[in-house]
């Protein structure tokens, strides 16, 4: 029992943790494949990160240092709420500094600071099925994954190029994992996709409502789908961060007046602060 009396360490009971841990291990053994799991009803709503929370709860130990970000920032309300949930139910140390964290739970971003091999990043995933917008039936998409039949996605990307001159997907851009499984990287901007490729940290993905867990082991090939004559390009707003001057980070566009005035600042708040502090 723990800090919030009456509940087990990290909220989940041990039986549930074992079930999730077994799913995580199978997910690691089959990189990019979505493993169904008996997702539990959590005290936060579906869509708020219940999959990521269950994965984090199954992984987290007393000595871990947890960082939670949403949209790249530690101070967004849902990141605050999830960090509090684990501070209450597990009593673990938390941090906003990417370098200090051992477990990072994220929604929609990968930190700018390169992750190390002693870290685990847990992605919150709303829709784990990369083919869902092209084929709504999961019975059908499961068959496609079994056969590695991803023609539908290639056709969609090709049609985009014919119509717009480039792929029109700007986030949750589909990737191939180790050359076998098509995978949804979760709704991170396509800018972040290259960070997944051969990342030193273990990447775990939890989709609570859809009841799927998947994983990318360290140093595993993660390739954004593209064509020889239309290579994948990561794009960002063509500006420098107003606060730290970074020209290589992903930027938020902040509206400053009703006359079309804008400023651009780093989406990764920890990275931006670190640059300003000179650390």
């Amino acid at each position: 029992m723990n800090v919030a009396s009456g509940y087990n360490f990290a909220y989940l009971d041990e039986q549930t943790k074992r079930m999730i841990r077994r799913a995580i291990l199978k997910a690691v053994a089959i990189p990019g494949h979505q493993v169904p799991f008996g997702s539990r009803e959590m005290p936060l709503p579906y869509g708020w990160g219940t999959g990521g929370i269950q994965v984090t709860a199954a992984v987290l130990g007393r000595d871990d240092v947890l960082k939670v970000i949403d949209q790249g920032a530690d101070d967004t309300t849902n990141a605050v709420s999830i960090r509090r949930f684990f501070a209450r139910t597990a009593g673990v140390a938390t941090t906003t500094h990417t370098a200090e964290a051992t477990v990072i739970q994220t929604r929609h971003r990968i930190p700018e600071t390169a992750l190390r091999q002693d870290q685990i990043i847990v992605y919150q995933v709303p829709q784990p099925e990369p083919l869902s917008r092209l084929e709504p039936s999961r019975e059908e998409t499961r068959r496609m994954h079994a056969l590695a039949d991803y023609g539908l996605m290639h056709v969609k990307l090709y049609e985009d190029i014919t119509r717009f001159g480039h792929v029109s997907i700007s986030y949750d851009y589909p990737v191939m994992v180790d050359g076998r499984y098509l995978m949804a990287p979760s709704p991170i901007p396509a800018f972040d996709n290259p960070k997944m490729d051969r990342m030193a940290a273990l990447q775990l993905f939890g989709a609570g409502r859809e009841k799927r867990i998947y994983a990318v082991p360290p140093y595993t090939s993660v390739r954004s789908l593209d064509f020889d004559d239309h290579e994948f390009r990561a794009s960002r707003a063509p500006h420098a961060c107003l606060l730290c001057g970074a020209t290589d980070s992903y930027l938020d566009e902040v509206v400053i007046d009703d006359q079309g005035g804008r400023m651009f600042v780093c989406s990764d708040t920890d990275h931006c602060e670190g640059r300003r502090d000179g650390t």
Partner: peptide
């Protein structure tokens, strides 16, 4: 300590399976 010993062992297996 069933809760924390199991967690530590799981992390060992996870690390071994991942690397």
């Amino acid at each position: 300590d069933p809760v924390h010993d199991a967690q530590a062992c799981f992390r060992a297996v996870l690390d071994a399976m991942s690397r």
